[in-house]
Nucleic acid binder design. Structure first.
Lengths: 313, 313
DNA sequence: TTGTTGAAAAAACATTTGTTCAACCCTGTA
DNA sequence: TACAGGGTTGAACAAATGTTTTTTCAACAA
């Protein structure tokens, strides 16, 4: 190949085009060559790195990490926000703000929305602007009650329904029952069956995850210290949809998991769009497992968490 | 003004556009905004320096200097080449190569070309590819003979005429005559008058300049050391069109200038296109003066010379 | 409430950019 | 001399980009 690259000419053209803002036609006629050649040299110049465009912003990493997340786990979308929070609560607030906008764009009339549990989702909903829709239902995917209060501090279903002008269906049951028997009893009730079924037919699910280091899980879950330690010993690394999961995102073989009012990962996957809203160091292991199993289709998280996730195990 | 600049959005768009190569329409629909907004943010981003394009080449300076030259002295065009030459001869060769191409694009059929004098022009012509034109005349603007040889080493007229398939008219006279009387005698000859007149009606002139430090001028000019020193003392800083000029590009008041076979700057300016082809430290002062007086409309030089010129006095 | 303002979407339009293809000009080669 | 191959031009076309106008909608002040 008789490669002879007229760099001086290319530089001149690039200068005229990018620095002086001339049009390609102007450049061609001024230099006295064909416009086609101007285009060719301009493309060559970019390919050879003679001209390079730079994006000067710390926020670029957010986008790049989001891209990497979608690539790595085949997601439909990812949003990554900065992690400038001082504590987990503030982080949840920031992730929630971003997640709100991301989720809104997915919502349409006549949808059924399955909603999970957690402080991040609560924050998300509280910052959501009013966005009335028609014929929308918001359904709890999990029980909603905790030991301490009738309506959980982390329950977001009713608030979301209010913002969307939607019907609100939640399960008047604890997240984790006292006993397996109680769970069985509750689950056989007609209303429960109905709500549960409708949850499975949801168009979109918005969920979060709890790490085991996180204080919220102990505060909310109806498990005592002994049981907690025992389930951890059994391999639990986090909590998803109320269940304690291990590094493969499968349920830990432990009695506490048979007292959970929730749906299994298998049927959860039938929901077409499943958005994970979560961030923080304590949740990385669980998030990684959930992503690896393809349990979610979208994610909203923060830079630090995204970096950890992509760094791998 | 309620300035609120959505940097994260702009970064995302810029990333999609410049790094991922997506089309603006794709970006708009993917993000769920109007295409007009994508364009607006993209422009804003460039204005704010969020995205910057860089041209990575040492040759960029050539173009920038050329721009600066045209700006500074209101030229029609400028070409600046690298100054990697080891000696003045090599520099002349490189400038000549560039000048050749630059000049070719200015030449058309039926033109009359006035040609100056000097090693740079000689180099230019010798590297010129054959480019036959119709009804073209090449005319010396100066005498062509030197003390040492009948046909000067720096005479380029005949060679240029050959390349262009043009009629060649040169003045069979020394650049500088023995005496004012000789000059008068020669100038009154009909043929001289004729050629001289045609030179003044040239469509384009291609000229160079000599600095006083340059060895070529002493070698070629028919002046002895005494005269040389005396003209320098009189304020000469260089040689243009055969004449010794001062810092204002006006003729030095010295007898040697009345023995020159050439044309004055005033009538030279009647030629519509006047291309200066010259470079080298020794010629900077003369070049600056010539440019300042608007004696030329175009210039071809090298980076170092251009820098010196623009740095000012 | 009513009106006003500003931001953005939507649509129509003008311009620029990218692509393709035939014709041409070199240059090297048989 | 004839001929193939690479590269350029010029023209026609398709696609993308930039601009303008109109409309909508939400925020805000009277």
């Amino acid at each position: 190949m008789t490669e002879e690259w007229p760099e001086q000419l290319a530089v001149r053209i690039a200068h005229c085009y990018y620095n002086l803002g001339m049009t390609q036609q102007q450049i061609a006629t001024e230099i006295g060559i064909g416009r086609a050649r101007v285009i060719k040299l301009l493309n060559e110049a970019r390919k050879r790195g003679l001209v390079s465009v730079q994006i000067n912003s710390p926020l670029l990493e957010n986008v790049e990490l989001a891209d990497a997340l979608t690539q790595r786990w085949g997601l439909l979308s990812a949003e990554v926000c900065l992690s400038h929070a001082r504590d987990e609560h503030q982080l949840a607030s920031q992730i929630g703000a971003v997640a709100g906008n991301a989720v809104l764009s997915l919502l349409k009339d006549d949808m059924t929305i399955g909603l999970g549990w957690g402080i991040t989702l609560k924050e998300m909903v509280s910052q959501l602007k009013s966005y009335p829709l028609n014929n929308v239902s918001v359904i709890s995917l999990l029980g909603s009650l905790t030991r301490r209060s009738t309506i959980a501090r982390f329950e977001a279903t009713t608030a979301l329904a209010a913002k969307l002008n939607a019907e609100c269906l939640y399960l008047p049951a604890p997240i984790i029952c006292d006993s397996e028997q109680t769970r069985e009893l509750l689950m056989t009730q007609a209303m429960f069956q109905d709500i549960h079924q409708r949850a499975l037919n949801a168009d979109i699910a918005i969920v979060s995850t709890g790490g085991l280091d996180s204080s919220t899980i102990r505060e909310v879950a109806m498990v005592d210290e002994n049981e907690y330690r025992s389930v951890v010993k059994q391999g639990a690394i986090g909590n998803f949809l109320g269940y304690f999961i291990d590094g493969n995102a499968t349920l830990v073989d432990h009695p506490v998991n048979s007292r959970v009012i929730g749906i299994s990962g298998g049927v959860f996957k039938k929901i077409p769009r499943r958005v994970m809203v979560s961030g923080g160091h304590s949740k990385v292991k669980a998030l990684a497992a959930i992503l690896e199993q393809g349990l979610v289709t979208d994610i909203v998280t923060d830079v630090a968490t995204a970096r950890e996730l992509l760094a791998g195990p």
